[in-house]
Amino acid sequence: MMNWNLYSRGDKFFAIVVSILIGMFTAATLYPFIYIAAVSFSSGFAATAGKVVLTPIDATLEAYKYILAEPMFWLSYRNTFIYTIGGTLMSLAFIIPGAYALSRPQLKGRRFFNLFIAFTMWFNAGLIPFFLNMRDLGLLDSMFGIIIAFAVNAFNIILLRNFFEAIPQSFEEAARMDGANDFQVLWKVYVPLSKPAIATITLFCIVSRWNGFFWAMVLLKSEEKIPLQVFLRHTIANLSDTDEFALNVLDAAYSAETVTAAIIVCSIIPVLIVYPFIQKYFEKGILLGGVKE
């Protein structure tokens, strides 16, 4: 039905205009990243004077040298890896068995439990009670607190439960005949059959952990526990109003702008590395999560 050769002259014109518009939007999406990369490789003087447009001016690695020599950068990078890996494993440990149980027709109170979980998507106690609860639990300034408190969310459980429910019962019958219990059925039948859904959830968890900022900023007080995003925020906030940078603008090989840009590049790279894997799954994943209680 979409065949270039069958297109009328008007259709061809329309298709070309649309292609150009898409190209423009794509370029506009990509441009800020190119701009930031260009700034990060430019000299501090050129960046501060606003000379960078598309490519690095007076190309230099000074901004990267500055940031890579900063011990806090490495520490926060390590912390982000801990939060991402620990948090994702924690999430899966809760979500997979929980979703399996909720998908079982013989579970008593199944309607109640489903509502109990879905309700939290529509009503949220808010920032203050959540914060006070974390304090009462003794989880302020705790790495474990960050990992456990954001391990589960209703959306991911419902997504996986929907997927489990769609698997025909006949798949587990053979395993049941061999005397498998629920743990074995889950592990040997459901998990292997649900690889796409579990991959989707894993990637959602990884991305949200990697990007997590607000609660890490609020809950963590010790500098040695903060993740990369909080370090990035501190650096951007400090750089824009410290004199250290303002003083030697003229001969600076790096500036607030180039250092900020260099940290941004460093923290985007891991996202770009996992992105092709994410893309393979998220398109399906979103549709899978069709929210129903």
Partner: peptide, 22 residues
């Protein structure tokens, strides 16, 4: 069927502690 209740328990406890207690 105790096993499916055992699987559900951690999730329910988590929701109580981190979302319903607030």
């Amino acid at each position: 069927e105790w096993q499916i209740y055992a699987m559900l328990l951690p999730t329910i406890v988590w929701f109580v502690v981190f979302l319903y207690k607030p």
